[in-house]
Design a binder for these strands. Structure first.
Length: 213
DNA sequence: CAGTCGATTCACT
DNA sequence: GTGAATCGACTGA
């Protein structure tokens, strides 16, 4: 007899905690994405915390702007931004409201809807690569700016329902410096991942762009 | 208003 | 391992 997985959606209160507490607690949780073609479910294996205006790596470091507005709003909402002229990255806003903290979803394992995800991830060589990296993750899920500000706690009406699933055992959680974050933002070990999980993306230090001639 | 660069990915050597 | 792709947000003058 197989145990019934817990499908209770995470509540607003779950996200209304300090981001350093929420981030590791998201590992192992399952994100459900509802699309017209069917559901995609992603088990989160890698995340990063960004903590407000005092965090040099955060989009909120230089204060409130049109782009980061959602980070200042209530927890449990989705912050999506566009970067490198072609990619989207997705965050979950944490508490308390006004602190502008959020968790970047960096990687996960597609456990339902791999067929749909493969169509959006043509260059993926295998299923472990479907959501191995923050921009790959949004591609696999079909997430873009249209979802910026969406409520992730409004299941089942929301395009998302973040489920409890089974949080990964604490002794499986690893942490280290955040990937690709420039300067002083690299000092905080606020990247969290599941040890030995094959869907976790490789660490890369920030690489300054070569100057154009 | 022009210059700079990004919480990245992919193709190629 | 290296470099290109590609554009909007942000910065500072």
């Amino acid at each position: 007899m197989i145990a019934t997985p817990d499908r209770t959606p995470l509540t607003r209160e779950f996200f209304n905690r300090p981001v350093l507490e929420v981030a590791p607690d998201l590992l192992g949780r399952v994100l459900v994405r509802t699309t017209p073609d069917g559901p995609i479910e992603l088990r989160l294996t890698e995340v990063e915390a960004y903590d407000g205006e005092n965090d040099p790596g955060s989009h909120a470091y230089r204060g409130r702007t049109a782009r980061n507005e959602v980070m200042y709003g209530p927890p449990g909402h989705v912050y999506v931004y566009f970067t490198y002229g072609m990619w989207h990255c997705m965050n979950l806003v944490c508490g308390p409201e006004g602190r502008a903290s959020a968790v970047l979803l960096r990687a996960g394992e597609v456990i339902v809807g791999a067929e749909l995800a493969r169509k959006r991830r043509i260059s993926a060589r295998n299923d472990k690569e479907l959501a191995k990296g923050p921009a790959r993750l949004t591609m696999a899920l079909g997430v873009d700016r249209a979802l910026d500000g969406a409520d992730a706690c409004a299941a089942p009406d929301s395009p998302f329902a973040t489920l409890t699933g089974t949080p990964v055992a604490p002794d499986q959680v690893r942490s280290g410096p955040r990937t690709g974050v420039a300067g002083d933002g690299g000092i905080h070990p606020w990247r969290y991942w599941i040890g030995n999980d094959p869907t976790v993306s490789p660490y890369r230090a920030h690489t300054p762009r070569r100057r154009r001639t």
